[in-house]
Design a protein around this nucleic acid. Structure first.
Length: 301
DNA sequence: ATAAGGCCTAAGAG
DNA sequence: ACTCTTAGGCCTT
């Protein structure tokens, strides 16, 4: 087993692991006590995920777990995971500077102040895409259950330190699923969307990574080619996986925030409202602002 | 380009 | 206990 520690004091703006991993951005991590979303913050809790890397055409899976302990982020893994941890949890983001550069706005100030240390995540793109297809009209705890189920049923199994872990399925693995199977697993009307999108990626009809090199709005349009992906889900994938920090997913929470706090930003359509709110929330890092406002409102501000 | 109606289903709210 | 509504929307018409 490989291990490492990263002093939290070295990170600009710190790290709140609980808020980062249980705020509904990522469905790729699981809390080892199994109490995610339902319970309260567990200060020393381990979170684990499985990272798939490809080398020489073959894929390898690495189990990774992290916890916040005595002012350090501790990690344990099947591999040397320092770089991976920093990437997945975006530990090199200058959070202090991002907060400082945010527009002067009472709701945003309040949200940033209330949830100090919450960072954006960088999820693997295919898992992120499927997670947010599943997210339509769904509570975060159930989205998490669905993603866990897909990993259990279709993903690789990995043994680590006496326990069994499940990787999120590859496109080819998930494409073997049928709509009926996924309905039985509780995905409801999202079942055919997940199967079709997995087939599209497996068949080479497209890949979410293709959006990386496009301009923001072109990237959003690109992602909507996948079945079950509209503007909102596309924005989630851009923000939580593909590095588009300006993406502002307009979900029900943001829509209510716009209605109450930024009514002049409502342009009547997703595209126009998106431009207006993105501008209002600071442009470049508007997605960070979105995530704080979302979390602030959802947790009962 | 924009507007309705239908959709799975479990957990909260009333 | 039981019904009604809601939950980080999308697809088709």
């Amino acid at each position: 087993m490989e291990t490492g520690t990263i002093p939290l004091g070295d990170l600009s703006g710190g790290l709140d692991l609980y808020r980062t991993l249980e705020s509904g951005q990522s469905y790729c991590w699981r809390r080892s006590d199994g109490e995610m979303y339902g319970g309260s913050p567990a200060p020393d809790a381990w979170y684990h995920t499985v990272v798939s890397g490809s080398e020489d055409g073959s894929t390898s899976n690495a189990v990774l777990r992290v916890r916040d302990h005595n002012g350090h982020l501790e990690w344990e893994s099947t591999t040397d995971a320092d770089t991976i941890v920093r990437r997945l949890l975006r530990l090199d983001d200058d959070l202090e500077a991002i907060v400082a550069a945010a527009p002067d706005d009472s709701l945003l100030d309040e949200a940033y102040e209330a949830h100090r240390g919450m960072r954006l995540v960088e999820d693997p793109s295919f898992a992120c895409l499927i997670s947010f297809i599943c997210s339509a009209q769904m509570r975060v705890s159930r989205i998490h259950t669905m993603v866990s189920t897909l990993a259990r049923e279709y993903g690789d199994q990995i043994e680590f330190d006496g326990d069994t872990y499940h990787a999120f399925p590859t496109p080819a693995q998930l494409a073997t699923a049928t709509e009926a199977e996924l309905r039985d697993l509780g995905l409801g009307y999202r079942a055919p969307y997940v199967v079709r999108t997995a087939e599209m990626v497996a068949n080479g009809e497209g890949h979410p990574d293709e959006a990386r090199d496009l301009e923001y709005e072109d990237a959003r349009d690109y992602l909507t080619r996948f079945v079950g992906v509209g503007d909102k889900v596309a924005d989630c994938v851009l923000l939580f996986s593909l590095g588009f920090d300006e993406a502002v997913p307009l979900d029900t929470w943001l829509k209510s925030a716009i209605e109450e706090y930024y009514p002049d930003c409502d342009g009547g359509s997703y595209a126009t409202t998106s431009r207006a709110i993105r501008d209002r929330l600071g442009g470049e890092y508007a997605g960070y602002a979105q995530t704080y406002i979302f979390h602030h409102l959802r947790t009962g501000a």
